[in-house]
Amino acid sequence: SLTLTVRGEEAVRRWYKWAQAHNLEVEVETHGDEYVLHIK
């Protein structure tokens, strides 16, 4: 499992696509303009 902090929706989309390509689940938490992604 992997936890990432990114800024901006574009980065979130990029990681989301990456995770889907690897059959992984993604949980997204929003903290202001930062997003915490939990990839499992």
Rank of each mutant, 00 (worst) to 15 (best):
V36E: 03
G8F: 05
A21V: 11
R14E: 11
Q20K: 14
A19D: 00
D33I: 06
T5R: 14
V36N: 03
R13N: 13
H22I: 03
S1E: 14
L2P: 05
W15Q: 00
H31N: 14
L37F: 04
E34Y: 15
V12R: 04
V6H: 01
H31G: 04
L37T: 00
I39T: 01
H22W: 05
A11K: 04
K17Q: 14
T30D: 10
V12A: 12
T3N: 07
H38D: 02
R13S: 07
T5N: 08
R7Y: 13
R14H: 09
V28Y: 05
T30P: 13
T30K: 15
K17M: 12
H38G: 02
W18Y: 07
G32Y: 04
G8W: 05
R14W: 15
V26T: 03
E29K: 08
I39C: 13
K40T: 12
T3Q: 09
V28E: 03
H38V: 11
L4F: 08
E10V: 09
L2E: 04
E25S: 12
L4H: 04
S1T: 14
G8K: 03
T30H: 13
W18L: 03
E29H: 08
R14I: 08
E34S: 11
D33A: 07
L24F: 13
H22K: 06
E29A: 07
W15D: 00
R14Y: 13
A11V: 08
D33G: 09
L24I: 06
Q20H: 09
D33H: 07
T30M: 14
A11G: 05
S1A: 11
A21K: 11
Q20Y: 10
T5V: 15
T5A: 07
R7I: 13
T3H: 11
A19V: 05
L37Y: 01
S1H: 13
E10P: 05
E29F: 12
A21R: 08
D33V: 06
A21P: 00
E9D: 08
R14Q: 12
R7L: 10
A19R: 00
K17V: 10
L4R: 06
A19W: 02
W15H: 02
A21N: 10
Y35Q: 02
V26P: 02
L4Y: 03
L37H: 00
Y35K: 03
K17L: 12
E29D: 05
I39E: 00
N23R: 06
V36W: 05
G8S: 15
H38W: 07
V36K: 07
G8V: 03
H22S: 03
Q20R: 11
H38A: 04
E9F: 11
E10W: 07
Y16V: 15
R14F: 15
N23P: 01
A11W: 06
T3G: 04
E25Q: 13
D33S: 07
A11H: 06
E34D: 08
R14T: 06
I39P: 00
G32F: 05
H38E: 04
L4T: 05
N23V: 03
V28L: 10
A11Q: 09
S1Y: 14
L37S: 00
T30S: 12
L24Y: 14
W18F: 06
K17I: 12
L24P: 00
S1D: 14
Q20G: 04
K17D: 14
E10Y: 06
T5S: 06
A21F: 11
K40Q: 09
G32M: 05
I39L: 07
V12L: 15
E27G: 04
T30E: 13
E9K: 12
T3E: 06
T3F: 05
H31R: 13
E25N: 09
E9Y: 09
T5D: 02
V26S: 01
E29L: 09
V12Y: 15
V6Q: 02
K40E: 04
E25F: 12
L24W: 11
L4Q: 03
E10N: 09
L4D: 01
E27Y: 14
T5Y: 09
G8L: 04
E25V: 14
K40G: 08
Y35H: 05
L2D: 04
A11T: 08
V28S: 03
I39Y: 02
R13L: 12
R13K: 14
W18R: 01
E27A: 09
Y35F: 13
R13E: 12
S1N: 14
T5I: 15
I39F: 14
Q20V: 12
N23H: 12
E27Q: 11
W18G: 00
H22N: 10
E34K: 11
V36P: 00
T30L: 12
A11M: 10
E27W: 14
Y35E: 02
E34Q: 11
Y35T: 06
L2M: 10
E10I: 08
K40V: 08
H22V: 03
E27H: 12
E9T: 09
W15G: 01
V6M: 03
G8Y: 04
I39H: 01
G32N: 06
L2H: 08
L4V: 15
V12H: 02
A11Y: 05
H38I: 13
Q20M: 13
E34R: 11
K17N: 11
V26M: 14
W15K: 01
V12P: 00
E9I: 15
A11D: 08
R14P: 02
V28T: 07
L2G: 04
K40M: 10
K40Y: 14
E9N: 06
E27C: 15
G8E: 05
E10G: 07
E9H: 08
V36R: 07
R14V: 07
N23S: 09
E10H: 09
V12E: 02
K40H: 12
V26L: 13
H31W: 10
V26E: 00
W18K: 01
K17T: 10
L2S: 04
V26W: 06
V36S: 03
R7H: 12
W18A: 02
A19I: 07
V28K: 04
T3P: 03
L4M: 09
L4W: 03
H31L: 11
E29Y: 11
L37R: 00
V26C: 12
W15F: 09
V36I: 14
V36F: 05
W18N: 01
R14D: 08
R13A: 11
Y35D: 01
Y35W: 08
S1K: 13
V12C: 14
V28C: 12
A19Q: 01
Y35V: 06
A11F: 05
E27L: 12
D33Y: 06
H38K: 11
L2R: 06
K40W: 13
I39R: 00
L2N: 04
G8Q: 03
V26A: 03
D33M: 06
Y16P: 01
H31I: 13
G32V: 04
V36G: 01
V12W: 05
E25W: 12
S1R: 11
Y35A: 03
E29S: 09
E10L: 08
H22Q: 07
V26F: 14
E27D: 10
E10D: 11
R7P: 03
W18D: 01
T30I: 15
T3W: 06
Y16N: 05
D33Q: 09
V26R: 00
W18I: 04
K17R: 11
L37G: 00
E34N: 11
A21L: 13
A11N: 12
R13W: 08
E10R: 09
Y16R: 14
E25M: 12
R7S: 10
R13H: 10
A19N: 01
V36Y: 06
V6A: 03
A19F: 08
E34A: 10
E34I: 15
V6F: 03
L2F: 15
S1F: 13
W15T: 02
A21W: 11
A21Y: 12
V6N: 01
K40I: 10
W15Y: 05
V6Y: 01
R14G: 06
E34W: 15
L37W: 01
W15E: 01
E25Y: 13
E34F: 15
W18V: 02
H38C: 10
E10A: 13
G8P: 01
E29C: 11
E34L: 15
H31T: 08
L37N: 00
L2A: 04
V6E: 02
K40S: 12
N23T: 03
V28G: 02
I39G: 00
Y16G: 04
Y16K: 15
R13Y: 08
A19G: 03
E9S: 08
E29V: 11
H31V: 13
L4A: 04
T3D: 05
E27R: 13
L24H: 04
